[in-house]
Computed example of a mutant assay.
Amino acid sequence: MAAINRIAAFAEDMTAGRRHLHRHPELGLHHPGFEFNDRVAPVGASFFARLVERAQPPG
């Protein structure tokens, strides 16, 4: 399957997922009891930035 076809299929799956969440808001992505610790956000961002940098080809 060509890459463009895989991207198109993924987009359709994402749209279906969003529609499902809109039809069933009780499933929600956020839980009222969840507390996000803002102090750790830079640690996570740094981790993922280094991960991407290491995955890049040299040059």
Rank of each mutant, 00 (worst) to 15 (best):
A2W: 14
A2M: 14
A2E: 14
A3N: 01
A3F: 05
A3C: 04
I4R: 09
I4A: 11
I4M: 12
I4K: 10
N5C: 09
N5R: 05
N5I: 02
N5F: 13
R6K: 04
R6I: 07
R6E: 12
I7N: 09
A8H: 08
A8R: 04
A8T: 09
A8N: 13
A9Y: 02
A9I: 03
F10R: 03
F10S: 01
F10A: 04
A11Y: 00
A11W: 00
E12P: 03
E12C: 11
E12G: 10
D13S: 08
D13R: 14
D13W: 06
D13T: 07
D13F: 07
M14F: 11
M14R: 12
M14W: 09
M14H: 12
M14C: 13
T15Y: 10
T15V: 14
A16T: 05
A16D: 02
A16E: 02
A16W: 02
A16C: 03
G17Q: 15
G17P: 10
R18C: 13
R18Q: 14
R18F: 15
R19Y: 12
R19G: 13
R19H: 13
H20Q: 02
L21I: 03
L21P: 00
H22M: 15
R23N: 08
R23A: 09
R23W: 03
H24L: 15
P25I: 08
P25V: 10
P25W: 04
P25R: 06
E26G: 05
E26Y: 09
E26R: 06
L27Q: 13
L27D: 08
L27S: 13
L27W: 11
L27G: 07
L27P: 01
G28V: 08
G28M: 06
G28I: 08
G28E: 03
G28S: 10
L29R: 06
L29F: 11
L29D: 11
H30E: 15
H30K: 09
H31Y: 06
H31P: 04
H31V: 05
H31T: 09
G33C: 05
G33L: 07
F34C: 11
F34W: 09
F34E: 08
F34N: 10
F34I: 07
F34Y: 12
E35V: 15
E35S: 15
E35P: 02
E35L: 12
F36S: 13
N37K: 13
N37V: 09
D38N: 07
D38Y: 10
D38K: 11
R39N: 06
R39E: 12
R39S: 07
R39T: 07
V40N: 08
V40C: 12
V40K: 02
V40Q: 10
V40G: 07
V40Y: 04
A41N: 04
A41V: 13
V43W: 11
G44R: 12
A45K: 00
F47I: 11
F47W: 12
F48S: 04
F48W: 04
F48N: 02
F48V: 05
A49Q: 00
L51S: 03
L51C: 08
L51T: 06
V52N: 05
V52A: 09
V52F: 06
E53H: 11
E53S: 12
R54N: 01
R54A: 04
Q56D: 07
Q56W: 06
Q56E: 08
Q56C: 02
P57Q: 08
P57M: 00
P57Y: 03
P57I: 01
P57A: 01
P58T: 04
P58L: 03
P58N: 07
G59D: 01
G59E: 00
